[in-house]
Simulated assay, not measured.
Amino acid sequence: MLLYCGGMVTASAGSPEPSPRAVTPTVETVLAFVNTRADGSGRRELFADGESFGAWLAEHDAFGGETVVTDADAAVARELRDALVTLLLAHSGDEESLGEPLLRAERHLRRVGSLYPLATVVTAGGVQLASPQAGVPRVFGTVLAAVATFAQSGDWGRIKACRNPPCHFGFLDRTRNGGGLYCSTGCGSQVSMRKHRRRQREDAAAQAPEA
């Protein structure tokens, strides 16, 4: 079982492995962080500045709760979040996120990993990844610990971002074959409708008489 507790992500020894379709606390931690961006359909930017980032932290004890933050901290949070979203879009096979965008995101995450290193805590009950830092660095370390712990389960590719632009909402793909591309049937329907309309326009253009 994977547990989250006060800045630590724990893999408990002797517990059965979670189903790849189970939303574990580590998944919840990752999704809570990445699903903070504005999407053009009603969801607002929650990391717009220090004030909004601080308000979000005050409501999320899993990240350490209320913490003094600045506009610069909010900018770092956005950069980390957006890099993760690019990876999750790559998990969904989003072509625009592959290539150079993905390489930039991976390079950024390597830099973040060096700035917010994790401590390994070994006990008789299991092995824990924890941020040894305090304040805002602990927030970013908590995100990295959740990512690292879940990735070790072998199901990292099941955390995806919706391929329907501009949604890109993070979700856990709980389909049997891991082939989910959209966060909801609504988003899937929107993409299908856009494709249908595009085909209609292309067919109409092809059938139009030449001037």
Results as ranks from 00 to 15, higher is better:
167 C>T: 04
81 R>L: 05
111 R>V: 03
46 L>Y: 04
42 G>C: 10
30 V>T: 05
200 Q>M: 06
98 L>C: 03
64 G>N: 02
32 A>P: 00
23 V>W: 08
97 S>T: 05
144 L>V: 11
154 G>S: 09
7 G>L: 01
129 L>V: 00
190 Q>Y: 08
161 A>D: 02
10 T>D: 10
68 V>R: 07
38 A>G: 15
130 A>Y: 03
205 A>G: 08
110 R>I: 13
34 V>S: 10
51 E>K: 11
173 D>N: 00
86 T>P: 00
166 P>W: 13
57 L>A: 01
105 A>W: 04
185 T>L: 05
27 V>Q: 06
119 A>V: 12
77 A>P: 08
186 G>N: 10
60 H>E: 15
13 A>M: 04
3 L>W: 12
46 L>A: 08
80 L>K: 10
93 G>W: 01
95 E>T: 10
176 R>T: 09
187 C>P: 13
4 Y>N: 07
77 A>Y: 06
90 A>H: 01
108 H>E: 09
7 G>Y: 05
24 T>E: 04
166 P>L: 13
104 R>E: 13
36 T>E: 00
53 F>G: 08
197 R>K: 12
152 Q>M: 12
39 D>W: 08
49 D>M: 02
17 E>N: 06
10 T>G: 06
188 G>C: 01
34 V>N: 07
120 T>L: 10
198 R>I: 02
151 A>V: 05
61 D>F: 03
12 S>E: 12
7 G>E: 03
182 Y>V: 09
22 A>Q: 15
170 G>E: 12
135 G>Y: 06
13 A>L: 12
159 I>N: 06
155 D>E: 11
150 F>W: 14
104 R>Q: 15
208 A>H: 11
94 D>T: 06
168 H>V: 02
158 R>S: 04
144 L>C: 11
13 A>I: 05
171 F>K: 05
92 S>T: 07
134 A>E: 15
146 A>E: 02
152 Q>Y: 00
22 A>K: 13
128 Q>H: 14
92 S>N: 01
14 G>S: 07
167 C>L: 11
83 A>E: 04
104 R>M: 12
191 V>A: 05
32 A>G: 10
13 A>C: 10
137 P>R: 02
163 R>K: 13
201 R>W: 09
124 A>Q: 02
169 F>A: 05
44 R>S: 03
122 V>S: 08
9 V>T: 13
171 F>P: 06
211 A>G: 14
190 Q>I: 08
139 V>A: 04
209 P>C: 06
203 D>S: 07
55 A>D: 01
96 E>Q: 10
199 R>F: 09
197 R>I: 10
140 F>D: 12
67 T>C: 03
147 V>E: 05
179 G>K: 14
125 G>F: 12
7 G>W: 01
103 L>D: 14
12 S>N: 01
169 F>Q: 12
92 S>L: 02
90 A>E: 02
142 T>L: 11
185 T>G: 11
21 R>H: 14
180 G>I: 02
208 A>I: 01
